[in-house]
Amino acid sequence: MMMLELYVFVLAAFTGYMVISRVPPLLHTPLMAATNAISGISLVGSLIAAGARHSNVATVLGFIAVVCATSNIVGGFLITDRMLKMFQRGKPKPADRVTGALDDA
């Protein structure tokens, strides 16, 4: 029946659990944004529904699904990147020290 699919599901869920449980709380919001972007993969199903020309209804539904999934992919990856860019380590850079000293003076 769907044994192969079940295998894939169980192994992927297991892998996901192992990998994601090690993500620190620090990055939980980027994690949600990232999984959200990846869930845009439903675009794969949407593309087939929109392009297979089964019936007008299927095409229109597929089209809306393509719009939703694409906006998730584009928006999701962009926002994840934007957030991750903000997370900076605090080791004092030499340049900061200099300006800090000047401010004090």
Binding site: L47, I48, G51, A52, G62, G75, G76
Partner: peptide, 29 residues
Amino acid sequence: TLVNHTIVDYRWIAAGLVIGAVIGYPMGQ
């Protein structure tokens, strides 16, 4: 996916991808 043989008509797909990207960009940026 786009080379999948069941896809025969790319017009709706192209429109959907463009509109989706136009909605997604501000949502991301």
